[in-house]
Amino acid sequence: MVVSGRSVQQEGQEQARTAGLLILLFLLGGGVVISLMVGAKPLSAATVWNALTAFDGSYDHTAVQEARVPRTILSLVVGGALGLSGALIQAFTRNPLADPGILGVNAGAAFAVAAGIGLFSVSTISGYMWFAFGGALLATVAVYIISGGAGRMSPAPVQITLAGVALGAVLSGITAVFRMMNSEAFSAMLEWSVGSLARRSLSDLVPVLPFILVGVVLTLALSPALNAVALGDDRAASMGVNIQRTRLISLLGVTLLAGGATAIAGPIGFIGLMVPHSVRWVTGPDQRWIFVYSIVAAPLLLLVSDIIGRVLMPPAEIPVGIITAFLGAPVLIVLIRRKKASGL
């Protein structure tokens, strides 16, 4: 009786998860439609539909095809990558406060891009990309080594967070110096460094997309191992999980996802923190569900943030990175003020 009772409960949870996922997908669809309609000039749903199906070359139709469609697609990709990278970092560091921003990954990417602009006169988004990747990779590895991750034991969450904060502070400071020494780089960097989805085209996405996709595949493939790691290194090892390999692949995944997203949009904080945290309330501790939910919920959050940024101060736009900081920082404060940060 007890056994069948549990299975009924599990089935109920399974149904709740599936229903929640469908609701999220529905909301995401709504977000996409609104994102196409809202902007410097609001357009009706009919106009948007015509622009997509019967393009007539008018100003409105061009705005939809040239600006809003690419921007919306970018939001979906960047949001998904950020959300998933946050979930992955939180899983493998067993640190519920981990986020590409907090762990210095964004700062590493920004530092490398600033170096690229300042030292090698890089000026295109696709040019930024390689630097952003390199910087993200270096920062991730450096934080992990500084906090003692190269040892046999997993480093404590506090250690990783502190190392990320310290390295992030150093790198963003040096980035500021780079900017000061070159006023052209200053303007170019300033816009990139707040994190924005404006003025990007789909061709900027093409070179980055394969890396993000590989990151997604790696992460999803890793979820059973990460479920075991959540029980502790010893238990995971006894279940046949290769801890070192799991960590290495996780690092690679975080770099591909966060680095790719940052390369396109600049550093956007807190999405990777908020989304996995919130979805865990619905999904429970199973990483597979957390990952899938994050991939859907994070683009939704990023889209909504971007829409808010477009309508808040017309005709000017507020870059999405600023909106997410304002949404995410209070969440972080609430989380840290709770007695125990939500466990994994």
Binding site: L97, G101, I102, T161, L162, V165, V194, G269, F270, G321, I322, A325, F326, G328, A329, P330, L332, I333, I336, R337
Partner: peptide
């Protein structure tokens, strides 16, 4: 420290 990070993030924005 964490609250400091959060507030700093908003201020840098």
């Amino acid at each position: 420290i964490i609250v400091g990070i959060a507030i700093s993030a908003m201020l840098s924005s």
